[in-house]
């Protein structure tokens, strides 16, 4: 049971890091698309969502694994 509790805690802590990172990447894309060209709103928003999703996929395992390593010693 302790293992599951630790898992939940790790997942929560990791989410607090990778979610802002992904949202940040999406926002950065949105700002860049708004500033750098005359893109349709749908393209800007759609692009931001796509970049956000991919950033989430990239950052989620990296951050989760790092948080886990910090949390407990590995055998």
């Amino acid at each position: 049971m302790e293992h599951e509790r630790v898992e939940r805690e790790v997942a929560r802590k990791a989410a607090l890091i990778y979610l802002p990172m992904s949202i940040g990447a999406a926002l950065l894309f949105l700002i860049a698309a708004s500033v750098l060209g005359d893109y349709p709103t749908v393209a800007r928003v759609g692009g931001a969502i796509w970049v956000g999703v991919l950033s989430l996929i990239v950052s989620m395992p990296m951050v989760t694994s790092r948080v886990k390593k910090q949390w407990r010693g590995k055998f």
């Binding site: 894309f29 860049a32 692009g47 796509w50 991919l54 950033s55």
Partner: peptide, 12 residues
């Protein structure tokens, strides 16, 4: 990561 770069390159 490459998929993000490809998207950003072709988009911008």
């Amino acid at each position: 990561l490459l998929a993000v770069l490809v998207f950003v390159f072709w988009f911008f």
